[in-house]
């Protein structure tokens, strides 16, 4: 987006990192929802569909987490690194002006 419009609308806080994190969390809750739904379904047709969707959600989750790891926005292997990133993000969110 145009940097000036971004600042004007307060959208500069909504960085790619935030969007990617949102996508990751959605994918994660999606997988959990699917797992619940699959074990409730009995009709083969519905079960097959939900299983397929579960696999697709798993692929999506994997893709996003790999992407975020490559970008350095997600440190699954380095807790300390992840904690400092978290603290940084917390402060960014806390210091955001309320529109």
């Amino acid at each position: 987006m145009n940097p000036i419009i971004e600042t004007l609308t307060g959208m500069d806080a909504l960085s790619d990192q935030v969007v990617a994190m949102d996508l990751l969390i959605s994918a994660k809750s999606g997988i959990r929802n699917y797992a619940m739904a699959v074990t409730e379904a009995g009709t083969p047709e519905i079960k097959e569909m939900l299983t397929r969707h579960l696999v697709e959600a798993l692929d999506m989750h994997e893709q996003i987490s790999t992407y975020m790891t490559e970008k350095g926005w997600y440190h699954a292997w380095d807790t300390n690194e992840q904690i400092s990133l978290d603290l940084n993000n917390i402060n960014t969110a806390l210091n955001l002006p309320t529109l």
Partner: peptide, 14 residues
Amino acid sequence: MKGLVTDQLLKDIM
């Protein structure tokens, strides 16, 4: 949200 993203790879995933 896809409209607010700048990175091409992220756009593709979305």
